Simulated scan of single mutants.
Amino acid sequence: ATLIPSVAVPLSLIGTFGVMYLLGFSLNNLSLMALTIATGFVIDDAIVVVENISRRLEEGESPMQAALKGSQQIGFTIISLTFSLIAVLIPLLFM
């Protein structure tokens, strides 16, 4: 459960910095804040998915079946959670 976010977050940040460099973007307060918020989204979504999969494992399902059903079951929740967080943080866009 800890391994997935510990690999996904650095890789996504390194990829983001690479794309920013290739497109000529600079690091300012707004882009650093956006990276912080995006990292929070990744961690928050990963925690919700891992908790659901863990619950299904405790109910006696096999690891593969728990992962597939748990991820499928929580997909809409993750999407709605992400959109609601984006809606709440839209005022930061206008800074």
Rank of each mutant, 00 (worst) to 15 (best):
S31F: 00
A87R: 02
I78N: 05
N52D: 03
P5K: 01
S80A: 06
E51T: 05
A46R: 01
I86F: 12
A8L: 14
S31H: 01
V9Y: 04
I37G: 08
I86E: 03
V48W: 00
G40L: 06
L13P: 05
Y21P: 04
V7N: 04
T36V: 15
T39M: 14
N28H: 10
D44Y: 14
T39Y: 00
M33T: 15
P91K: 00
F83S: 09
N28V: 11
S54E: 06
N29S: 12
R56A: 07
M64R: 11
E58D: 02
S62T: 13
D45W: 03
I86A: 10
S54R: 08
P63S: 06
A34Q: 14
T82Q: 13
T77H: 02
D45N: 14
L23H: 11
G18T: 14
E59S: 10
I86V: 11
I4D: 07
P91I: 00
V50F: 00
N28K: 12
G75P: 00
I78A: 09
I37L: 15
Q72I: 03
L3D: 08
F41G: 07
G15P: 08
S26V: 07
L85V: 02
A38H: 10
K69P: 00
Q65A: 06
P5T: 02
A34P: 15
V48G: 08
A66L: 05
I74W: 01
V50Y: 00
E61D: 08
G75N: 06
I4V: 13
A87I: 05
L93D: 05
L22P: 02
F17K: 09
L13Q: 11
P91H: 01
T39N: 07
L11E: 04
T36D: 06
I79A: 11
N29C: 10
E51P: 04
G60F: 00
G15M: 12
I90L: 13
F41Y: 07
L93M: 06
A66G: 08
L57C: 03
